[in-house]
Write a protein that binds this DNA or RNA. Sequence first.
DNA 1: CACTTGACCTGTCCGC
DNA 2: TGCGGACAGGTCAAGT
Length: 283
Amino acid sequence: MPELPEVETIKLGLEKKIIGLNIQSIDILNRTSFIGESKLVIGKVVISVWRRAKVLGIDLEDNLSLMFHLKMSGQIIFEGRDKFIGGHPTNDMFGSMPNSSTRVIVYFTDSSKLFFNDQRKFGWVKICNTKDVINDKFLSKLGPEPLEKEFTLEVFKSQLMKRKNSPVKVVILDQAIISGIGNIYAAEAVFLAKIDPRKKVKDLSETDMKNLHHGIIKSLSDGVKYKGSSSVHFVNEAGQRGSFLDHAFVYGREGKNCKICNQILNKINLGGRGTIFCPNCQK
DNA sequence: CACTTGACCTGTCCGC
DNA sequence: TGCGGACAGGTCAAGT
Protein backbone atom coordinates (compact mmCIF):
# COMPACT_ATOMS: atom_id res chain seq x y z
CA MET A 1 0.00 0.00 0.00
CA PRO A 2 1.99 2.87 1.19
CA GLU A 3 4.89 4.26 -0.70
CA LEU A 4 7.18 7.05 0.42
CA PRO A 5 4.55 9.85 0.40
CA GLU A 6 2.02 7.78 2.33
CA VAL A 7 4.52 6.82 5.03
CA GLU A 8 5.77 10.41 5.17
CA THR A 9 2.17 11.58 5.66
CA ILE A 10 1.76 9.19 8.58
CA LYS A 11 5.10 10.28 10.03
CA LEU A 12 4.22 13.99 9.89
CA GLY A 13 0.88 13.37 11.58
CA LEU A 14 2.10 10.92 14.17
CA GLU A 15 5.05 12.94 15.43
CA LYS A 16 2.69 15.73 16.49
CA LYS A 17 0.76 13.30 18.64
CA ILE A 18 2.94 10.66 20.22
CA ILE A 19 6.21 12.31 21.25
CA GLY A 20 6.43 12.12 25.03
CA LEU A 21 3.90 9.32 25.41
CA ASN A 22 4.88 6.35 27.57
CA ILE A 23 4.20 2.79 26.42
CA GLN A 24 2.08 0.84 28.88
CA SER A 25 1.69 -2.45 27.03
CA ILE A 26 1.58 -4.08 23.61
CA ASP A 27 -1.03 -6.55 22.37
CA ILE A 28 0.04 -8.85 19.57
CA LEU A 29 -3.03 -10.21 17.83
CA ASN A 30 -1.11 -11.94 15.03
CA ARG A 31 2.24 -13.45 15.94
CA THR A 32 3.77 -13.21 12.46
CA SER A 33 3.18 -9.44 12.37
CA PHE A 34 5.64 -8.83 15.21
CA ILE A 35 9.38 -9.42 15.38
CA GLY A 36 11.27 -9.15 18.67
CA GLU A 37 10.48 -9.12 22.37
CA SER A 38 7.64 -6.68 23.02
CA LYS A 39 8.32 -6.55 26.78
CA LEU A 40 11.48 -4.56 26.10
CA VAL A 41 9.61 -1.36 25.26
CA ILE A 42 7.16 -1.30 28.15
CA GLY A 43 7.58 1.85 30.21
CA LYS A 44 9.62 3.59 27.50
CA VAL A 45 8.86 7.13 26.33
CA VAL A 46 8.60 8.11 22.65
CA ILE A 47 11.42 10.46 21.63
CA SER A 48 11.02 10.86 17.87
CA VAL A 49 9.32 9.56 14.73
CA TRP A 50 11.19 9.02 11.45
CA ARG A 51 10.86 7.52 7.99
CA ARG A 52 13.38 5.71 5.79
CA ALA A 53 12.07 4.53 2.40
CA LYS A 54 8.67 2.97 3.21
CA VAL A 55 9.59 2.17 6.81
CA LEU A 56 8.22 4.20 9.72
CA GLY A 57 10.34 4.30 12.87
CA ILE A 58 9.62 5.34 16.42
CA ASP A 59 12.64 5.97 18.64
CA LEU A 60 12.18 5.39 22.35
CA GLU A 61 14.33 6.19 25.34
CA ASP A 62 17.03 3.74 26.41
CA ASN A 63 18.31 3.03 22.88
CA LEU A 64 15.16 1.24 21.67
CA SER A 65 13.25 1.63 18.42
CA LEU A 66 10.07 0.31 16.88
CA MET A 67 9.93 -0.07 13.10
CA PHE A 68 6.84 -0.58 10.94
CA HIS A 69 6.61 -1.79 7.35
CA LEU A 70 3.10 -1.54 5.93
CA LYS A 71 3.74 -3.54 2.74
CA MET A 72 0.53 -3.80 0.68
CA SER A 73 -2.27 -3.29 3.17
CA GLY A 74 -0.87 -1.91 6.42
CA GLN A 75 -2.33 1.01 8.36
CA ILE A 76 -1.06 2.86 11.42
CA ILE A 77 -3.89 4.58 13.25
CA PHE A 78 -3.64 6.64 16.41
CA GLU A 79 -6.56 7.04 18.77
CA GLY A 80 -6.03 9.92 21.18
CA ARG A 81 -6.57 10.03 24.91
CA ASP A 82 -9.94 11.63 24.41
CA LYS A 83 -11.22 9.93 21.31
CA PHE A 84 -14.01 12.46 20.81
CA ILE A 85 -11.83 15.57 20.85
CA GLY A 86 -9.48 15.63 17.93
CA GLY A 87 -7.88 12.28 18.50
CA HIS A 88 -10.52 9.97 17.14
CA PRO A 89 -10.07 8.48 13.68
CA THR A 90 -12.62 10.32 11.54
CA ASN A 91 -12.47 7.72 8.80
CA ASP A 92 -15.50 6.76 6.78
CA MET A 93 -14.16 3.41 5.73
CA PHE A 94 -13.47 1.00 8.52
CA GLY A 95 -15.32 1.91 11.69
CA SER A 96 -13.85 1.87 15.14
CA MET A 97 -10.62 0.24 16.25
CA PRO A 98 -9.67 -2.49 16.65
CA ASN A 99 -11.19 -4.21 13.64
CA SER A 100 -10.73 -7.58 11.94
CA SER A 101 -7.43 -6.55 10.37
CA THR A 102 -5.85 -5.17 13.56
CA ARG A 103 -2.63 -7.13 14.22
CA VAL A 104 -0.84 -5.12 16.93
CA ILE A 105 -2.04 -2.56 19.48
CA VAL A 106 0.31 -0.26 21.40
CA TYR A 107 -1.28 1.14 24.58
CA PHE A 108 0.10 4.33 26.11
CA THR A 109 -0.18 5.22 29.78
CA ASP A 110 -2.49 8.20 29.06
CA SER A 111 -4.95 5.68 27.54
CA SER A 112 -4.26 6.64 23.93
CA LYS A 113 -3.57 3.78 21.51
CA LEU A 114 -1.73 3.02 18.29
CA PHE A 115 -3.26 0.37 16.01
CA PHE A 116 -1.30 -1.56 13.40
CA ASN A 117 -3.80 -2.96 10.91
CA ASP A 118 -2.79 -5.22 8.05
CA GLN A 119 -5.39 -7.17 6.13
CA ARG A 120 -2.92 -9.22 4.09
CA LYS A 121 -0.40 -9.82 6.90
CA PHE A 122 2.60 -8.97 4.72
CA GLY A 123 3.68 -6.11 6.95
CA TRP A 124 5.64 -6.19 10.19
CA VAL A 125 6.42 -4.39 13.39
CA LYS A 126 9.94 -4.87 14.67
CA ILE A 127 11.88 -3.94 17.80
CA CYS A 128 15.59 -3.26 17.76
CA ASN A 129 18.23 -1.14 19.42
CA THR A 130 18.26 2.37 17.96
CA LYS A 131 21.96 2.10 17.17
CA ASP A 132 21.32 -1.09 15.16
CA VAL A 133 18.71 0.50 12.88
CA ILE A 134 21.27 1.33 10.20
CA ASN A 135 22.41 -2.31 10.13
CA ASP A 136 18.90 -3.66 9.86
CA LYS A 137 18.54 -6.45 7.31
CA PHE A 138 16.03 -4.43 5.32
CA LEU A 139 17.20 -0.84 5.81
CA SER A 140 20.86 -1.49 5.09
CA LYS A 141 20.16 -2.52 1.48
CA LEU A 142 18.24 0.60 0.51
CA GLY A 143 19.31 3.06 -2.16
CA PRO A 144 19.24 6.86 -1.77
CA GLU A 145 16.23 8.83 -0.53
CA PRO A 146 14.76 10.59 -3.58
CA LEU A 147 13.54 13.67 -1.70
CA GLU A 148 16.88 14.34 -0.01
CA LYS A 149 19.69 16.55 -1.33
CA GLU A 150 21.87 13.48 -1.81
CA PHE A 151 19.65 12.42 -4.73
CA THR A 152 21.42 14.39 -7.44
CA LEU A 153 21.14 13.71 -11.16
CA GLU A 154 24.62 12.18 -11.08
CA VAL A 155 23.74 9.85 -8.22
CA PHE A 156 20.54 8.85 -10.01
CA LYS A 157 22.34 8.06 -13.25
CA SER A 158 24.95 5.91 -11.55
CA GLN A 159 22.26 4.03 -9.63
CA LEU A 160 20.25 3.42 -12.83
CA MET A 161 23.28 1.97 -14.59
CA LYS A 162 23.37 -0.91 -12.11
CA ARG A 163 20.42 -2.40 -14.01
CA LYS A 164 20.97 -1.50 -17.65
CA ASN A 165 18.95 -4.32 -19.17
CA SER A 166 15.69 -3.95 -17.27
CA PRO A 167 12.67 -1.85 -18.17
CA VAL A 168 12.97 1.57 -16.60
CA LYS A 169 9.81 1.32 -14.51
CA VAL A 170 10.99 -1.97 -13.01
CA VAL A 171 14.34 -0.38 -12.11
CA ILE A 172 12.91 2.62 -10.29
CA LEU A 173 10.77 0.21 -8.23
CA ASP A 174 13.96 -1.52 -7.05
CA GLN A 175 14.54 -0.30 -3.49
CA ALA A 176 18.28 -0.84 -3.79
CA ILE A 177 18.40 1.60 -6.71
CA ILE A 178 16.15 4.33 -5.21
CA SER A 179 14.20 3.88 -2.00
CA GLY A 180 10.55 4.66 -1.44
CA ILE A 181 9.02 4.45 -4.92
CA GLY A 182 6.15 2.01 -5.39
CA ASN A 183 3.85 1.12 -8.25
CA ILE A 184 1.77 4.31 -8.24
CA TYR A 185 4.61 6.82 -8.18
CA ALA A 186 6.73 4.75 -10.59
CA ALA A 187 3.95 4.95 -13.18
CA GLU A 188 3.46 8.66 -12.56
CA ALA A 189 7.19 9.41 -12.74
CA VAL A 190 7.70 7.74 -16.12
CA PHE A 191 4.61 9.51 -17.41
CA LEU A 192 5.91 12.91 -16.30
CA ALA A 193 9.22 12.09 -18.01
CA LYS A 194 7.37 11.02 -21.20
CA ILE A 195 9.19 7.67 -21.22
CA ASP A 196 7.64 4.34 -22.22
CA PRO A 197 7.77 2.23 -19.03
CA ARG A 198 9.11 -0.74 -21.06
CA LYS A 199 12.13 1.18 -22.34
CA LYS A 200 15.35 -0.36 -21.10
CA VAL A 201 17.73 1.72 -19.03
CA LYS A 202 20.53 1.32 -21.58
CA ASP A 203 18.30 2.96 -24.22
CA LEU A 204 17.56 6.07 -22.18
CA SER A 205 18.97 9.34 -23.53
CA GLU A 206 20.60 11.97 -21.32
CA THR A 207 17.40 13.98 -21.60
CA ASP A 208 15.32 10.96 -20.58
CA MET A 209 17.38 10.52 -17.42
CA LYS A 210 17.16 14.19 -16.57
CA ASN A 211 13.40 14.18 -17.10
CA LEU A 212 12.99 10.99 -15.09
CA HIS A 213 15.02 12.39 -12.21
CA HIS A 214 12.71 15.38 -12.19
CA GLY A 215 9.59 13.20 -12.66
CA ILE A 216 10.44 11.08 -9.63
CA ILE A 217 10.95 14.10 -7.40
CA LYS A 218 7.84 15.83 -8.74
CA SER A 219 5.50 12.85 -8.33
CA LEU A 220 6.75 11.99 -4.84
CA SER A 221 6.62 15.56 -3.59
CA ASP A 222 3.13 15.98 -5.02
CA GLY A 223 2.24 12.77 -3.18
CA VAL A 224 3.39 14.33 0.08
CA LYS A 225 1.64 17.61 -0.76
CA TYR A 226 -1.69 15.82 -1.30
CA LYS A 227 -1.17 13.62 1.77
CA GLY A 228 -0.84 10.38 -0.12
CA SER A 229 -2.96 8.26 -2.41
CA SER A 230 -6.60 7.58 -1.74
CA SER A 231 -6.84 4.04 -3.09
CA VAL A 232 -8.23 1.06 -1.24
CA HIS A 233 -6.17 0.75 1.90
CA PHE A 234 -4.36 3.97 2.57
CA VAL A 235 -5.37 6.16 5.47
CA ASN A 236 -3.19 8.43 7.58
CA GLU A 237 -2.63 8.18 11.32
CA ALA A 238 -6.05 9.78 11.90
CA GLY A 239 -7.82 7.37 9.55
CA GLN A 240 -8.21 9.88 6.73
CA ARG A 241 -7.60 9.34 3.04
CA GLY A 242 -5.25 11.45 0.91
CA SER A 243 -6.07 13.03 -2.43
CA PHE A 244 -3.03 12.31 -4.62
CA LEU A 245 -4.96 10.02 -6.96
CA ASP A 246 -7.30 12.87 -7.87
CA HIS A 247 -4.21 14.42 -9.45
CA ALA A 248 -2.67 11.28 -10.96
CA PHE A 249 -2.12 11.19 -14.72
CA VAL A 250 -2.07 7.43 -15.24
CA TYR A 251 -2.38 5.29 -12.11
CA GLY A 252 -5.92 3.94 -11.77
CA ARG A 253 -6.96 5.49 -15.11
CA GLU A 254 -6.89 2.48 -17.45
CA GLY A 255 -9.12 3.05 -20.47
CA LYS A 256 -9.59 6.72 -19.63
CA ASN A 257 -8.29 9.60 -21.70
CA CYS A 258 -4.79 10.96 -21.25
CA LYS A 259 -5.02 14.32 -19.48
CA ILE A 260 -2.42 15.72 -21.89
CA CYS A 261 -3.22 14.33 -25.36
CA ASN A 262 -6.67 12.77 -24.85
CA GLN A 263 -5.67 9.35 -26.21
CA ILE A 264 -6.85 6.22 -24.39
CA LEU A 265 -4.44 4.99 -21.70
CA ASN A 266 -3.15 1.41 -22.02
CA LYS A 267 -2.55 -1.18 -19.34
CA ILE A 268 0.27 -3.72 -19.53
CA ASN A 269 2.07 -6.05 -17.15
CA LEU A 270 5.67 -5.18 -16.31
CA GLY A 271 7.67 -7.22 -13.85
CA GLY A 272 4.46 -8.70 -12.53
CA ARG A 273 2.90 -5.33 -11.80
CA GLY A 274 0.02 -3.59 -13.55
CA THR A 275 1.32 -0.58 -15.46
CA ILE A 276 -0.81 2.11 -17.07
CA PHE A 277 0.70 4.52 -19.56
CA CYS A 278 -0.06 6.76 -22.52
CA PRO A 279 1.21 5.18 -25.75
CA ASN A 280 1.16 8.59 -27.40
CA CYS A 281 2.92 10.72 -24.77
CA GLN A 282 5.40 8.08 -23.58
CA LYS A 283 8.03 6.99 -26.09
C1' DC B 1 25.67 -12.92 -12.55
C1' DA B 2 21.40 -10.29 -14.10
C1' DC B 3 16.95 -10.69 -14.51
C1' DT B 4 12.17 -12.84 -14.01
C1' DT B 5 8.66 -15.40 -11.67
C1' DG B 6 6.09 -17.07 -7.88
C1' DA B 7 5.01 -17.07 -2.95
C1' DC B 8 3.46 -14.83 1.06
C1' DC B 9 -2.10 -13.53 2.72
C1' DT B 10 -6.87 -11.73 2.58
C1' DG B 11 -10.46 -9.50 0.26
C1' DT B 12 -12.90 -7.67 -3.71
C1' DC B 13 -14.41 -7.40 -8.24
C1' DC B 14 -15.62 -9.18 -12.77
C1' DG B 15 -17.25 -12.56 -16.08
C1' DC B 16 -19.81 -16.68 -16.78
C1' DT C 1 -26.63 -15.82 -6.40
C1' DG C 2 -22.58 -18.74 -6.80
C1' DC C 3 -18.08 -19.86 -8.34
C1' DG C 4 -13.52 -19.33 -10.33
C1' DG C 5 -9.97 -16.49 -11.59
C1' DA C 6 -7.52 -12.18 -11.75
C1' DC C 7 -5.92 -8.59 -9.23
C1' DA C 8 -4.38 -5.24 -5.23
C1' DG C 9 0.11 0.16 -3.55
C1' DG C 10 5.79 -4.77 -1.44
C1' DT C 11 9.53 -7.72 -0.81
C1' DC C 12 12.10 -12.01 -0.94
C1' DA C 13 13.38 -16.63 -2.42
C1' DA C 14 13.82 -19.60 -6.04
C1' DG C 15 14.13 -20.30 -10.86
C1' DT C 16 16.04 -19.45 -15.68
